[in-house]
Design a protein around this nucleic acid. Structure first.
Lengths: 340, 340
DNA sequence: TAGCGTCATGTGAGCGCTAACGGCAACGCT
DNA sequence: AGCGTTGCCGTTAGCGCTCACATGACGCTA
């Protein structure tokens, strides 16, 4: 492992100053073609690679952004990450992907870490905490974008999902299917998205002139297991329920499992709709009707907002909202597709 | 956005030299308790944060490692990432997770990028390329660990799966189930893992004194769609096949879909086994029998090997091999569980 | 011819940190 | 008393790059 080749080594070998080498590697115009060629040849021959650390220190820019997610295994976040990364790559930025493993206290640690690395900005997906320390930490970044979460205490540019409209349309689809006894597995009690999806459910039921049955609405952990348990409890207590709108696809898969266990046919006895359209939704049996959230597109938007902030500096509380699209599959088909 | 507080600012305010501040933040012993306290108070009051860039430049160490994966959405890789990250976190290292989006040429770009950032080492999962340029790039890193891939041209420490044993046991399970017409969806033609899983299939069939039927063996793209297509073609051409061993769980899910389309009952008509036990395997219907690869454990091993290399420097061609474990579910149950 | 502007290149300093070495005082041992 | 060791702290230089400014040569215009 030899000592690294530096800009000074290249300068000596090319017979120019270190500044000329810098001009060449940064594509500055004020270098003669002959000198440029000579320097490029030395660079190629020696395999010289600029140090990103030194460049970052000198320029206060690293062309790197941080992305923080609660769980990289969750397709919801990994699809957003893909969108962010594609846009970042196109614009010459690297993405430093940090996973907090669903441990909220690690969000602060990760932010400190990213600050030390002097990333040019951060994108936070599904923020779990909002302590004063965390808000302080966010303030120290030049550019910040939130995804799927707003903060009342401080506004940042954000990319949001129109959860209410998505939920309303999902419930409307169930109503179109002739179902009026519609249950709601609403996800975590204090979840931002859950509140909005609940509002969408309420709106659709009101629009149809139907009363809200508290017994048909259950909170649940947003996992397959959480969904299975809540659906089982709800359906056992309320066998009249003939449709379920679920907080997300994982919860919906759990509800499918509960129906199987209770010998309830899907969609004949209970129609089921999820939310997100993660890749799993099309692979389970029956294939899941769901609200597709354009996750990769959200990633593009988030990176776009961050770049604007980095380049223009004042974006205030700009919010981009994406609209879910209902994807009809077997778990809640169109009315005419349902065998009588 | 104020100018960042530096070590010199803290030194002035605390009335000491910058070197003393450095000693304090690095927990060096040769500072008096009174001086240390004074400095720590200034640090807390000013919110000073050391620059990781400057530290990296001065020490040639960044306490950061790179991890390269072909597709972060694939649970196989995201689970390995979790294992890597847990071990890295415990040892004070950050993980820079880089996704090549299944574009092999991006592997080289990502490696250049990681080199600029002067990461202390890299872990490469599922390497797709092995060009001379790529090998050169790998040589420039102080520490390198491969996951699920070896290179003939150059040895690096690696974490491997005992694909052959896993495959042999999966096929043995099918034989125990009384199936002798066992098909193999073998994955990509030039895949390292595919060759070993093929060998395991051959070994088990030979052990049972059964001839190898070439028509029962198909290559396929390692996706759900690839598996669905290959299974359909194979089962249509060879309706006598009553069991399928599949390259991985995604391919197996595809095979499940093909059986449904062909009105072949699982497992009564065709028993199916996958490989990996990604999270999806337990959620499809019927739940998938598969060889569970301890992915998180692989991540722990990979990071462990990398740390050894960073700290001790000469690990040669050390290879850790993990053994898959057969997980019996509905797609290929035990013989006594099969209804006659 | 003199002065000014442009082009190409070089010199010096600084970004923020750590390593290496030096200086000084206090203490203990011979 | 003299020497060596330890503890504490400070000064200097360097890591590898970029920015700012300076310099010399050349060409053009008044």
């Amino acid at each position: 492992m030899a000592r690294r080749i530096t800009i000074s080594d290249v300068a000596k070998l090319a017979g120019v100053s270190h500044q000329t080498v810098s001009r060449v590697i940064n594509n500055k115009p004020d270098v003669s073609p002959a000198t440029r060629q000579r320097v490029l040849e030395v660079i190629k021959k020696t395999g010289y690679r600029p140090s990103g650390l030194a460049r970052g220190l000198a320029t206060s820019k690293t062309a790197t952004i941080g992305m923080v997610v609660p769980d990289i295994s969750n397709p919801f976040f990994s699809d957003i990450a893909r969108g962010i990364e594609t846009t970042a790559y196109e614009r010459g930025y690297n993405v430093f992907l940090c996973n907090t493993n669903e441990e909220p206290e690690r969000e602060l640690e990760v932010l400190y870490s990213l600050e030390q690395k002097q990333v040019d900005g951060v994108i936070l997906c599904g923020l779990r905490q909002k302590t004063p320390a965390l808000l302080d930490a966010l303030e120290r970044f030049f550019a910040v974008v939130l995804v799927n979460r707003l903060l009342e205490e401080k506004t940042f540019p954000a990319v949001m999902i129109d959860n209410q409209t998505g939920a309303k349309e999902a419930v409307q689809h169930l109503l179109n299917l002739g179902r009026t006894n519609i249950g709601l597995l609403v996800g975590p009690a204090f979840s931002y998205s859950a509140k909005q999806r609940y509002q969408g459910y309420i709106e659709a039921m009101h629009n149809a002139g139907l009363p809200i049955q508290d017994g048909w609405i259950h909170n649940c952990i947003p996992t397959v297991e959480g969904g299975e348990q809540a659906a089982r409890v709800l359906l056992e207590a309320h066998p009249e329920v003939n449709a379920l709108f679920c907080y997300n696809d994982l919860v919906a898969v759990g509800a499918i499992q509960a129906c199987h266990a209770l010998q309830r046919k899907i969609p004949e006895d209970v129609a089921i709709i999820g939310f997100d359209d993660i890749y799993l939704a099309a692979l389970v049996t029956p294939a899941l009707t769901t609200c597709r959230v354009p996750l990769i597109e959200m990633g593009h938007h988030a990176m776009g907002l961050l770049l604007q902030q980095i380049n223009e500096k004042h974006l205030g509380s700009r919010v981009i909202t994406v609209t879910p699209q209902l994807i009809i599959r077997d778990s809640a088909p169109f009315a005419h597709e349902l065998t009588p």
